[in-house]
């Protein structure tokens, strides 16, 4: 398997997910009362500063398709945590848990990404949660 996700990252799922991100204020953009959890296919990945954005085609109940855009951390912070762009390659089926934009659009702050095999990573910023006091 190419670039497998390290077990240590999988284990961080057991720790509370941090909510906020660098650069822009999470609370000002995304509604903490509007949790979203969608499953779909990654259609595009922008692995760029200051934040990654990844786009997911999600099939609605009526059969129509919605393309969600999720913002994550900076590539630097993710890479220092061992998360590389391969994990969000277009075509990958993922479940994203996050928070919807305040304006109700299909933009969101993507917090946790779960893959089909059950492994998960956080795409938001985190100090190493295990080091948090």
């Amino acid at each position: 398997m190419k670039n497998p996700i390290p077990l240590s990252l999988f284990l961080t799922v057991l720790v509370a997910a941090p909510l906020a991100q660098a650069h822009h204020s999470f609370a000002s953009e995304f509604d903490l009362n509007k949790k979203v959890k969608v499953t779909g296919v990654v259609t595009k990945l922008e692995w760029q500063n200051p934040h990654i954005w990844y786009y997911v085609d999600v099939k609605n109940e009526d059969g129509s398709m919605t393309n969600w855009a999720f913002s994550g951390s900076s590539p630097i912070q993710l890479m220092r945590r061992g998360i590389h762009k391969d994990v969000l390659a277009p075509g990958t089926i993922i479940t994203v848990e996050g928070y919807q934009a305040k304006d109700g659009s299909h933009n969101g702050g993507g917090s946790k990404v779960t893959f089909q095999d059950g492994r998960s990573v956080f795409t938001t910023v985190a100090d190493d949660p295990n080091e948090k006091k």
């Binding site: 822009h24 500063n49 855009a69 913002s71 900076s74 304006d103």
Partner: peptide, 17 residues
Amino acid sequence: YECQENNRCPGGHCQGK
């Protein structure tokens, strides 16, 4: 870290696409 590379928050409103 080049902030202007793909800043999708111009105007303070973050939006993909």
